[in-house]
Design a protein around this nucleic acid. Structure first.
Length: 351
DNA sequence: AGGATTTGACCCGG
DNA sequence: CCGGGTCAAATCCT
């Protein structure tokens, strides 16, 4: 990836960071209908921007990110959530979790059954790991009754049964020890773009606490965790109040699809306008023979950097497409900024 | 054509 | 016998 591309990529990331700060401010007070519309627009636009970032191969695992955000939402909303590990009667280790996003948990699942459960308004769905037939990991998904008819996103109880062994099996098959910590995947086109090691996470994909490993470090040094917390918190707030992500997903099943998105009002962003000005610089240093690169950006008063080595390389053949995607991405960001960032309202077409 | 999903039938423990 | 979990044939989707 060229410096120019890096800079544009960072441009978008910086914009997203700043946007989240704005969002946090917006969400810090009660929302009227206009505010709710804005929040929904944020969510949709952010999803699109992140989607493009993933398509650009920046190494952000969108699925993992969204999954973690949903989990953050679930935790903050329900006060829940992970139950202690226990042994079920006839199965292996089980673990329960309440989540607004039972589908994007970073693993590939194949539905093998559904059942009407007594005293439940929603059917229960049964999934097993589809990554390797020998993998015994399963999960049950049960939408909670309390979520019916509310404006809040529906919540689901997900019961994970058995540990994933698919990554181990695959590593053995490949004779590749490095893959023993293979990444979880989901059934979506971004599956190979970027991943997070969740080998220690039994059935549930990426633990929320590991989000920092799937998100570019912002702030650098010891302050990055707090910065990331801010970003995650803000994104969680956005998704909590808005429509689910537009990612292709096996969920929800057709019968449930209508009930899942009660606030799916359409929103057309205003025309794109001017972007903010900011600068970027790249520093390269030798570190015991290994070249390390840090990138520093100055956005207003916020100076933050991260290690671009976490991004995937992009082949030369894709450069043209990349540039087009970058342009689209800037359009998205501009629209986004125009929606929420008042100082972006200066006249004139945006690039 | 092959994989994923659907759905009624079947199994099994309480 | 009942209810939860799984199977497997039919169907759908790509």
């Amino acid at each position: 990836m060229t410096f120019q591309q890096d800079a544009k990529l960072f441009d978008v990331l910086a914009m997203g960071y700043h946007l989240n700060t704005q969002l946090q401010a917006l969400l810090g007070r009660p929302l009227d209908s206009l505010g709710q519309q804005k929040v929904m627009a944020f969510s949709q636009e952010l999803s699109r921007v992140f989607e493009k970032l993933c398509l650009l191969g920046c190494g952000l695992c969108l699925d993992c990110l969204i999954t973690n955000i949903h989990r953050a939402v679930a935790r903050s909303d329900s006060g829940e959530v992970l139950t202690p590990v226990k042994k079920s009667r006839e199965e292996g280790v089980t673990r329960k979790e309440i989540t607004a996003s039972p589908y994007n948990d970073g693993y590939e699942w194949r539905k093998y059954g559904q059942k009407n459960i007594q005293n439940c308004n929603f059917v229960r769905y049964y999934f097993r790991c589809s990554r390797d037939r020998r993998c015994e990991a399963k999960k049950k998904v049960q939408q909670q009754d309390g979520s019916r008819g509310q404006q809040l996103p529906p919540m689901f109880e997900v019961t994970y049964v058995n540990e994933h062994t698919c990554h181990v099996l695959r590593a053995i098959a490949n004779g590749d020890a490095a893959r023993m910590a293979a990444s979880p995947r989901t059934t979506n086109p971004y599956r190979d773009l970027g991943v997070v090691d969740t080998a220690r996470d039994g059935g549930g994909g990426v633990p929320f606490d590991d989000l920092s490993s799937s998100f570019p470090r912002i702030g650098g040094g010891s302050g990055s965790a707090q910065e990331n917390e801010t970003i995650v918190s803000c994104l969680a707030d956005v998704i909590r109040g808005a429509a689910p992500s537009p990612l292709p997903s096996p969920w929800p099943p057709a019968a449930e699809a209508g009930a899942r998105d009660p606030a799916a009002a359409s929103y057309v962003p205003p025309p794109m306008q001017a972007s903010a000005g900011h600068s970027a610089s790249v520093g390269v240093a030798e570190d015991g023979g290994a070249m390390t690169t840090t990138t520093t950006m100055m956005i207003d008063d916020t100076d933050f950097c991260w290690d671009p080595s976490s991004f995937c390389a992009v082949g030369e053949a894709d450069q043209d497409q990349l540039m087009m995607d970058h342009r689209d991405m800037h359009v998205d960001v501009a629209r986004l900024a125009d929606t929420v960032w008042p100082r972006h309202t200066s006249a004139g077409a945006w690039r």
